[in-house]
Design a protein around this nucleic acid. Sequence first.
DNA 1: ATGGTTGCAGCGCAA
Length: 259
Amino acid sequence: MLTIATWNINSIRMRLPLLLSWLKETAPDIVLLQETKTSDDQFPREAIEDLQYNIAISGQKSYNGVAILSKFPLEDVTLGIPGFADDQARYLEAVTNGMRVASVYVPNGSAVGTDKYQYKLTFLKHLYAHTQTLLTYDEAFVLGGDFNIAPTDQDVYDPEEWHEKILCSTPEREGLRSLVYLGLTDALRALHPHQKELYTWWDYRRGDWQNNFGLRIDHLLLSPQAADHLTEAFVDKNVRAIEKSSDHAPVVCGINCFM
DNA sequence: ATGGTTGCAGCGCAA
């Protein structure tokens, strides 16, 4: 079985010791990282390569930044969404072990109605168009990352408080839903359709982690060829519980080998 | 409480 994880790590340099111990302990085959928050020359390559991972990165100073770690060679690495001129490092795609994977960090959007919100919707439109192209390849493909969107009220600890707020507004949800309706499977929800309190992000403020005030905004979206072999999916809350962790927990899925 | 915390860069901004 192949395990694939996505994790908004909130600074790869700040989180390096935690990442290394997590990699040693859980040994995922492929890891999609977001918010590495560093330029490529500052990326801690060696420490991760020492654990037998190949690395592809699209970094940026201070903000954003995505990476792919894989136990297998990384081929056909693509930086950015093809056809979308974006000066922010938010999308990275590669082929590894015969499977296409992409790490995406969808813009947060700040607040509904702002310029950043518009940029979020534009980004989603381009992600939709590119995903549409990828699905014509009829191959195993995993699009994972921090989408900064809670798909439904089921994915929010207090839907009334979050009603039409950023991460939960109808246009954002429609953007994500249209993407999924191209034919992708939301791995975590597909295997746990009724599970309550299935969250991936807890705000650092107000003691939200301690109160389990979370939202499910990180997703692993699988093409049909990948979804057919999906065996498990879970949120790794253990690592979120550790002191000085990221505000996001990893989402992990298992895919039966089919090559 | 338009608050709270964190990371980066270098004390304001993004999340």
